[in-house]
Nucleic acid binder design. Structure first.
Lengths: 192, 192, 192, 192
DNA sequence: CATGAATGAGGCTTCATTCAT
DNA sequence: AATGAATGAAGCCTCATTCAT
């Protein structure tokens, strides 16, 4: 019973922290904000997580990668990635893909490393496996860069055309670019 | 003992501010840091700039757009943009294109607006003029997104292949994507 | 080492603030002074009161009006008021009637309004009810002015004769002036 | 020529200081305010006056007492004093009698002493010479207190009836109180 | 173990004042 | 002698964090 309360409070703190850190960045978020959102005293954060930094690390740990991101048809991989970046409900992260939101805290080298690791381990690697030719990794990174750029222009910078685009609007261009960069035919969207 | 030269001191403060804000972002930079870098008392910042915010605005004001960025041959426009983003000496901004560096302060809506304005006014507009078809603006933004994404992956995230790539490595892929997105033949690099 | 008692600490801060603000005025009092008097860290003031201004407002809130000030015999009303102004133990306010002490912060319009409200609501109104004739309010204010003036000359300016006067010395003159201004016989002192 | 400029600037600084100190009090006035009002650099104040405090002392030195204040008919003395306090053009002092204005800086013991000296030397002494009986000084102070109180309630506290009263409205009450306190017939106003 | 009172460093900013030029 | 650049202390306030209870 007690135990359950503790776990529940910890979870709620984590959730509030995720939202704040995503929306306002590390520096503009105070532990008091998070505690207030949760309705508990700020000192609990130190009991449960040790420090603001540790809470940040835990709150922004890489989310579970959806199984179907990497497991579907190969020619739809890029389309699935794009949907993950811009057409997925990231309400828990303030409405943006976690990686995009984390750029708001990119003033800290630590955060940059975390972003790098996830971008490389998840996106670049999977794309590099698909690419043909000797500079496969570079081309995979260039495609990843595009996805990241779209995420940023769409939500952080809020550029007009991208901000109101639907997946269907992007699909043909996605196919063009992905096909061009990977050197093999890629679909612009998955049928589902 | 420094010379008592208002303009010189102001300029040195501005320079220090540009570097700090670019490297560490608005929140993680304190006016004392900047003053210390400059070797003067922090209160001078308020005499000369009014507030930290005003110093930030002035320090991160859009740099002069090189004349040749928009005035060269049309088919090399994207290549010139890419060089501006990743192969220009941005030492004064901590080594990154100012727009990329400013993302580190993107927790503040104000900064996001400034980024949006410059991206739209300079990059998207020029590209939209080149693009064919009815969704010209969307395609221009998609290409801008790519440039931004490259800037971020290369320096903020420091992804391995991109970080060590030379312009020549990127040129062919640039030509492919730009041509594909704009619907007309584009060069991957300019001869100079 | 002080007890960790929120209410007690708050009360001690309030007490120290009352004294400082009364003796030195708003501007010449720093929150650090008050905190030091209390023996706690200055940041507690902001936790408990929000700001220096709010602490000031709370510390100088009108003290309870003694029940017998307005409820005794009518012809002794002025005498009771005089005793309230100059012959009451205002140690908590640095030795002066709160209204007189507040004049030290009268550089701020806000404070002036508070003084006006209390003077009008408590003193002028009660006196106007007693005065005969059509300019009752003016005469009530003139009598209030006298009481205020006495308070000021006695403690702020510390004029010699008034500073050492006892109630008995003032009583006959009080009777004369009050009777003259109100147009009805008034006593110079109450028997108690 | 140079000499004249210096004296002129000094005089203008003094004038600006008088106004600021009167209207906002010592603490709320900064030397920069005064310098800005005068259109000169703040450091001139230190060259010419030594310190803010010395400027204050000089700016608020007792103004020349009008010759006719003390030299007219005896029975109109109080009337002349009242006119001096509330019906004289004190624009140079922000619209209030200098003594009343100075109460805004009464947080400092120094200022209080200066007020005391002027009140005693000018007002109390002249009135005491007129009063009959052994407690002449006390009665003179009580009358002075009234004048001060009227000045304060009228302009600092801005009590409604007093704030809009004309000299004619106050004259009869003045006669009553002055006559009562001094023990000899006094006029409520002078014929001029 | 949990609570919340207390802390002290540091944030931005304004002040009176000094000191080169 | 005059100018204005520079200073450093101190102002209010917020922060992450600690430590009694």
């Amino acid at each position: 019973m007690r135990k359950r309360d503790r776990e529940a409070t910890r979870a709620r703190l984590l959730e509030a922290a995720r939202l704040r850190f995503a929306r306002e960045g590390y520096d503009a978020t105070s532990v008091r904000d998070i505690a207030a959102d949760t309705g508990v005293d700020a000192s609990l954060i130190f009991r449960y997580f040790g420090s603001k930094k540790q809470l940040f690390d835990e709150a922004t740990a890489a989310p579970e990668i959806p199984l179907d991101l990497l497991d579907g048809p190969e020619d739809e991989l890029v389309a699935r990635m794009l949907r993950s970046v811009v057409f997925t409900d990231w309400t828990k992260y303030g409405g943006e893909h976690p990686l995009v939101a984390m750029l708001r805290s990119s003033a800290h080298e630590d955060t940059r490393q975390r972003i790098r690791r996830e971008v490389c381990d998840t996106y670049v690697r999977a794309l590099a496996d698909l690419a043909q030719g000797d500079d496969a990794e570079l081309r995979a990174e260039l495609l990843s860069a595009w996805l990241v750029g779209i995420g940023i222009l769409r939500s952080v910078v809020a550029t007009p055309a991208l901000a109101r685009a639907e997946l269907a609007d992007l699909a043909p261009h996605l196919a063009t670019v992905a096909t061009g960069l990977l050197g093999r035919p890629m679909a612009g969207s998955s049928e589902r």
